[in-house]
């Protein structure tokens, strides 16, 4: 099955494209999709999407169909065919 992945800000720069279709397996979670992306885009991408910054802020947050996965099941959030997953690095505005 396929999901739609969108990259924002610096993660878009690293990926080199704003969005892709990603083939995943039925039952795959956000964590599994991230691993697939890290395998596809290499070390810099992996570094930019793993762990937290010096101040303890996560390097990436995920939206699935508009919902922050922190309020779903986190990395365990199950994905379904046609889902939209967005990767957001730490940014802010006002």
């Amino acid at each position: 099955m396929k999901i739609h992945v969108k990259f924002l800000a610096t993660i878009r720069q690293i990926a080199g494209v704003p969005e892709i279709e990603l083939e995943i397996h039925p039952g795959d979670s956000v964590g599994a999709a991230l691993q697939a992306l890290q395998a596809r885009y290499g070390t810099t991408f992996k570094e930019a999407t793993t762990g937290t910054t010096t101040g303890g802020i996560p390097k990436v947050r995920f939206l699935v169909n508009g919902r922050n996965t922190d309020f779903l099941e986190g990395f365990e959030t199950k994905l379904e065919d046609g889902d939209v997953m967005v990767l957001i690095p730490p940014v802010a505005g006002g």
Partner: peptide, 16 residues
Amino acid sequence: GLHTYGTAILVNILNE
């Protein structure tokens, strides 16, 4: 993020 993209970085985040 603020230096690189300015406040306009919020467009995609709020839209998504």
